[in-house]
Design a protein around this nucleic acid. Structure first.
Lengths: 151, 151
DNA sequence: TACTGATGATCAGCATACTGATCAATAAGG
DNA sequence: CCTTATTGATCAGTATGCTGATCATCAGTA
């Protein structure tokens, strides 16, 4: 049952991530980390574009940014060109957090495939990527490449 | 990033499941389906044991059973041996639903790996199983085998 | 310019998951 | 028998994810 395995693997991935990150002294969820890293890599993008970059639903991203803002890691800035959209920026503390948390995040990635050999882990990643790419548009929140690759 | 792929694959798996099941005229979530099937396969088990069989958190299962009960697919029965526990049973309608919904569930399982060959899909399943087995105890809701295999 | 449609963001509502607490009932010990 | 620890179930609170709606704004067209 691929569906059941998908749920279980994700459940373990989240648990491992939270445990490693908390052990390192941080309070960030996997979802918040991914958003923070994506904002750092794409400064001043609006929320919809950000959601596409990490395949989040647009209604989910609102709450995630709320919490990142509350923690002082991200700021929302009104866009000059389009008054509907908010540009997102990582604060200095957000940058520091991102750098400091990286080892814990990497440890979590290794831990969740600790039962596999390096070759097997690479193969699992390849197969998940391939399956996901072929089914990308079947979810409400598909991955949308950056503007550069879009056209 | 295995963690990100895990989240995305699960996201797609849920979307595909809901779409197929709704197209077949049913209103059941993946989680509700798994619980219903597990109760049918293990009649009169208590909620904690059921949670272990499908790796759900004990606090999550309460709400899932609430909703299955509300839909008339499952009944809670007070246990004669232990007045703390509730024995779970599938109703006749639950049995009918389970039979009728099976083709849609199977279609969803195929759809979520439609980008892979049969061999690749089998390999993905094998690798996920292996990774999950080695990390089973890292989540709060580990899989607990049935009484037969437990000792 | 006025209208129409599309878009960015948010909201209410619902279903998973989890943390940690509570409560009743049971089991184990002295 | 009584105390203590454990266990089955539930609850409050929080964080994803989603459906569908709303609101303000923008873009394109008549």
């Amino acid at each position: 049952m691929p569906g059941h395995l998908a749920r279980r693997f994700q459940q373990i991935a989240v648990a491992v991530f939270l445990a490693e990150v908390e052990a390192a002294g941080f309070d960030l969820t996997p979802v918040q980390y991914a958003a923070l890293a994506a904002i750092a890599a794409n400064p001043a993008t609006d929320q919809i574009t950000l959601a596409g970059l990490i395949a989040y639903d647009r209604t989910t991203i609102t709450g995630v940014i709320d919490r990142l803002t509350q923690k002082g890691l991200v700021v929302r800035r009104a866009s000059a060109r389009d008054r509907r959209s908010r540009e997102l920026l990582v604060t200095d503390e957000g940058q520091r957090t991102l750098r400091a948390i990286t080892p814990a995040v990497e440890a979590a990635q290794r831990l969740m495939v600790r039962g596999l050999t390096k070759t097997e882990a690479r193969e699992l990643i390849r197969l998940m990527q391939k399956a996901i790419a072929a089914a990308n548009d079947l979810s409400r929140a598909p991955l949308r490449e950056g503007a550069a690759e879009r056209q």
